[in-house]
């Protein structure tokens, strides 16, 4: 007597694709035949339980809109960065922050804020120090402001510092683009306050 059908062969038997030599076994083995019949009966029951209620016709239009909106919001979320990419991002942010700071300073000077030569103007900023001087008008900053600027400048190379101090329109746009919404809001607040102060 041959061996009983395996699990896979039972499925083949239900599908009517059992190999002929195994069909021969099935014809003589009541136990295997009973198992196949039982499986077919369960399948017949299962086929009764598969109804899916059809959603409203409006649902599909709504669904497509939802997918489109979700895809848009997903695309708006920046991809998770690796640690080295994060470092690069932080550096970019720093450069952007310095550019913004320079813009604030420029606005402050342009709007005629109180400009008193400050002793802190001579603070060394490494290789960038030759770019700065009281004649550049940066002397109007108080100690805290100047400290912030010099801290930022010390982290930048000469080229980056030059970009910060003489930002092109493109660089400004790029810097502003790289800010988050909250940072942009903060920047606008800062800028507005500076301008208001200058007009007083």
């Amino acid at each position: 007597m041959t061996t009983h059908l395996s699990n896979q062969e039972f499925v083949d038997a239900v599908d009517l694709v059992l190999a002929s030599d195994r069909v021969a076994h099935l014809t003589v083995c009541a136990a295997c035949r009973a198992e196949v019949e039982a499986l077919r009966a369960v399948l017949a029951d299962v086929s009764q339980g598969g109804d899916v209620p059809e959603p409203s016709p409006l649902f599909w239009d709504h669904f497509q809109s939802r997918v489109r909106a979700e895809v848009q919001s997903e695309a708006a979320v920046p991809a998770r960065l690796s640690w080295w990419a994060t470092l690069g991002s932080a550096r970019t942010f720093l450069a952007a922050g310095a550019t913004v700071a320079a813009a604030v300073i420029a606005v402050s000077l342009y709007t005629g804020g109180s400009v008193e030569p400050g002793s802190s103007a001579a603070v060394s900023v490494g290789e960038t120090s030759e770019l700065l001087g009281p004649e550049d008008g940066f002397a109007g900053l108080d100690g805290v402001e100047w400290g912030f600027v010099t801290d930022v400048m010390e982290t930048l190379g000469p080229d980056e510092a030059r970009d910060v101090l003489v930002p092109t329109r493109h660089a400004m746009d790029a810097a502003f683009e790289s800010l988050t919404t909250a940072e942009r809001d903060a920047f606008v607040r800062l800028l507005t306050a500076e301008m208001a102060e200058g007009l007083e």
Binding site: N7, Q8, A41, L43, D45
Partner: peptide, 19 residues
Amino acid sequence: VGAAKANLFHALGNLRRLL
């Protein structure tokens, strides 16, 4: 494919017991 068939066989067997 064998694993898929085995899964189906076990699913039907379990369903039979549950029903």
